[in-house]
Design a protein around this nucleic acid. Structure first.
Lengths: 236, 236
DNA sequence: CTAGCTTGTGACAGTTTCCGTCAGGGGCTA
DNA sequence: TAGCCCCTGACGGAAACTGTCACAAGCTAG
């Protein structure tokens, strides 16, 4: 299949920093030189930043990547958070670049993600100083609970200041504009809820585990919720 | 060409968070259902995280992206810098994820980049506090000069504390472990040099412009230098 | 300037691959 | 049970790909 060859071609180009001739690529891929020219023309038509110069060879611009890069969800969260830090305060010269990169990422993560990034309705009020860096937030505990499908008991203080205690399945962590949200299936309310991590007073495991989601209703609800949140759930 | 359709297929999958049936994809792409099955089989064989369940449809795992994502060089720099910030101080829970993401990026950017990241020989001494955020560094000025191919006069203080003035072609900016480096072609020394931005005392344009690199010697040297640095040059 | 590379483009026949259609198996939901 | 839907196999016609040849253009080195 030609697809494989095209990706191999991209890989070969990416590795080298010195120009490569079409004949070298041809022998490497066991095809004729003409095919290499055709392949590269197609790749260029698709937007690959390959530059060819007569008498020299082909060079692929650095600083790009169009490989089959796969980030785990928490790695993606780290990237998004890092871009936020950069655009907010770190390097003024790179602020614009950070915002553009974030925009590209959000567009890739789906339309829903873009909406949630722009939407600050859930995030009224100045909370930047308190939880921007997530220093004291129970990330590790929640991450482990999500992965282990461990039912949790959560003490929470909502936006109005009211306290509540609930039993819930932790489903995922979402980074909003400037706060982390924990998505849960609340066993008490039999519905999804989103808790701001910095408003969680305490949490403890119940020892019980919830099954992997089964049943069409729950799945549909979960998908709907994800589409609304643009969630990047943590832990598969 | 089938390649286009495969990428459109990936885009379609990525946008949705709800399962998509093969028939829906078939009508969207104006091909038969059988072709969709074949396409998806090929994509899965290539490592795409597409999950298919009977009676439901196809879902692509979130948190991944293997699209033809293209970041501009400064956007990539913002990402790398952001990951550095996250791993160093921001969110302890995401530190590991940030380092893994940085490792993936560096592996993609070429072997040379990985070397330069690990190599801190050029970076002896505690410079973290001074130039970590790049607040007062002449990014914009240098970026513009690189893009305009504008010859510069640079006053510099080297690691030993010695002052020098040189005329140089600015070629690119590189983010090292914790310092920004300006790669130049030094007209005085007729060789490449790497200047730490926080050691640049002053710089001014000479008004002269240097031609696009010509000549095999210069090109080869440039490529060699890039391979050593793993440079992500700024400005085409 | 000449000689030697190398990138590009066009044409063409042979071959390969792809595509749609038809048929059937298996798993899940209601 | 009925109804979806994911899968797999087979097959003929259509489309794309491939290798070969031929030629133009640009750069490098001497």
């Amino acid at each position: 299949m030609r697809l494989f060859r095209l990706f191999r071609l991209l890989d070969l180009m990416r590795l080298r920093s010195t120009p490569v001739t079409a004949t070298a690529l041809a022998t490497e891929l066991s095809v004729s030189v003409r095919s290499i020219y055709r392949d590269i023309a197609d790749l260029q038509a698709m937007g690959a930043p390959i530059r060819g110069e007569g008498g020299i060879g082909y060079v692929m611009e650095r600083g790009y990547f169009l490989p089959s890069l796969r980030f785990e969800t928490d790695e993606l969260d780290a990237i998004v958070l890092g871009l936020k830090l950069v655009s907010e305060r770190a390097a003024p010269a790179l602020g614009g670049a950070a915002q553009r990169a974030a925009a590209k990422l959000s567009s890739v993560l789906g339309e829903a993600q873009k909406d949630s990034m722009a939407d600050s309705a859930l995030e009224a009020g100045p909370s930047r100083a308190s939880n921007r860096d997530g220093g004291s937030l129970p990330f590790a505990r929640l991450r482990a609970a999500i992965a282990a499908k461990e039912m949790l008991t959560i003490d929470y203080r909502n936006a109005s200041g009211r306290f509540s205690t609930r039993e819930a399945r932790p489903l995922g962590l979402t980074l909003f504009e400037n706060a982390w949200l924990l998505t849960i299936w609340c066993e008490t309310a039999q519905d999804f809820r989103h808790l701001r991590l910095d408003r969680i007073i305490s949490l403890s495991g119940t020892g019980k585990r919830f099954r992997a989601e089964k049943g069409k209703r729950f799945k549909d609800a979960l998908d709907l919720e994800r589409s609304k949140l643009g969630q990047r759930s943590l832990g598969t």
